[in-house]
Structure formats: structure tokens, C-alpha cells
Simulated scan of single mutants.
Amino acid sequence: MTSLLMSSGSLTHRATLDGSTEGITCIEFSATGRRILAASYDKSALLWQRDEPVPKLTLTGHRRKVTAARFSTLPHQVVTGSADRTIRQWDLHRAAVQVVEVASYCSDLVCPENCIISGHYDCKIRVWDTTISCAQELPAQGKVTSLDVSADQRQLLSCCRDDCLQLVDLRRWSNDRLCFR
């Protein structure tokens, strides 16, 4: 993976991050910007320190491509979702992992305060508590392809394969949604 720097209106090559043997499906910076987390087709997630080309950690155990990798709001934890129908919560300090089997391919996930929200190909958005127990399932209008949470963590935006963006108020968890087509 190549890192580019924007300077004076032009892009310049800054660094190349090594470690993945196949394509990257998802990438995220930590809140401090000092770490980079990526999900890969090679069935792993990789964690780099900024400005170091070799990954500090490679998280393995998924049986199919890792589709999402996110930093948790819990200290020293990351969460991954995979086409193997599992979600894994990794404790980076204890080298421990919690695995939960899911009924459907996990396409994306987000980690707002005190929960994990995952989007799936079975047209559902699942909300997990911090022990990775499913607390709620929300129906979606199509296969969920991506998720994002607003900066104030009050709204969830989902993109589905029905050509619709849905906006959900996370404070109410109701089926009342705005749909943008």
C-alpha cells in the first residue's frame, strides 16, 4: 500500500506500507493518527505504526477475506468483520480474540461509543454490545455495503444495494429513517 502526501497542490510519494499479500478492502487511521489498520483479501488485518513500513501486528484467523477493520472506542481493541460470517474483537494488549458467528457475510462495521454496528448481505444491520452479544437487528432495504457514523455519534448512515442511503437516529433505534435515492 502506498502513502501519498499532498504538498503545494500536487501528490508526492511518501511511503509504502508492506505486509498484505493481496488487495486491501478497508483502511482506517486511529483517533490519534499514529496507527493505521487495514483489512485484506489475504484473510488478515494489519496494524502499522505511522511512518513504519512493516506492520506491527498481523491479525489472522479469518477463513475468508476480511472486509472491515476498525478501531474500537475501547482502549487497545480493534474489530474485524469477514466474508467468513464472523466478527472478531481483538484485544491487542492481551493477544486475545473474541469470535462471534453471524448468519450472514459482514460487509462493513463501525464502532461508535459502547457498541459495534455491522452491516450484512442478509439485509440486516446488527448492533452488538461490548461483549459481542447481538442487542438488536434492524432491517435494511437491500444488502448492506457500507456504514458510517456521524462525528457526534448520533446518526448512522448505511448504503445498500437498493440504490438508497438510509440515515438512522441512533438515539431512538426505531425504524424511522430518512432514505436518500
Rank of each mutant, 00 (worst) to 15 (best):
V110I: 10
V149N: 08
C134Q: 15
T145M: 09
K56P: 03
Y41W: 13
L46H: 11
V144R: 08
T86M: 04
S146W: 13
R88I: 00
F29V: 00
V66L: 03
T32M: 08
D169E: 07
L109W: 04
R88Q: 04
T145D: 06
H62P: 01
T145A: 02
S104P: 12
L57H: 13
E52V: 13
E52H: 11
S8W: 01
D84K: 02
A140S: 15
T16M: 09
E137S: 14
R172I: 10
T60Q: 13
K56S: 09
G81I: 12
R181Q: 13
Q89H: 00
Y41D: 05
S174A: 13
T32V: 03
P55V: 04
L11S: 01
C111M: 06
L47G: 04
L46K: 11
F71V: 01
V149T: 12
A15Q: 13
A68F: 12
R154A: 09
R126G: 03
I117Q: 03
V78C: 11
L4Q: 09
V102A: 03
L165R: 01
N175D: 15
Y105R: 09
A96R: 08
A83E: 10
S104A: 15
A151N: 14
R161T: 14
L156E: 03
V168A: 13
H120W: 02
T60R: 06
R171M: 07
Y121S: 01
L74W: 09
V149H: 14
R126E: 02
A140L: 10
S72C: 06
G33F: 11
A151I: 14
D108C: 12
D162Y: 02
D169T: 13
K65C: 00
L109H: 03
R14K: 12
T73D: 04
D129W: 03
S174K: 12
D152R: 08
E137Y: 10
E52G: 03
A38I: 11
C111Q: 00
G142N: 04
C164G: 00
R64K: 14
L92A: 02
V127A: 05
N175H: 14
C159N: 12
C160P: 08
Q98A: 01
W173P: 01
L92I: 05
L46W: 04
S107V: 04
S118F: 00
K56T: 07
A15I: 12
W90S: 01
F29G: 10
T86F: 05
Q49H: 13
T16I: 10
D152E: 14
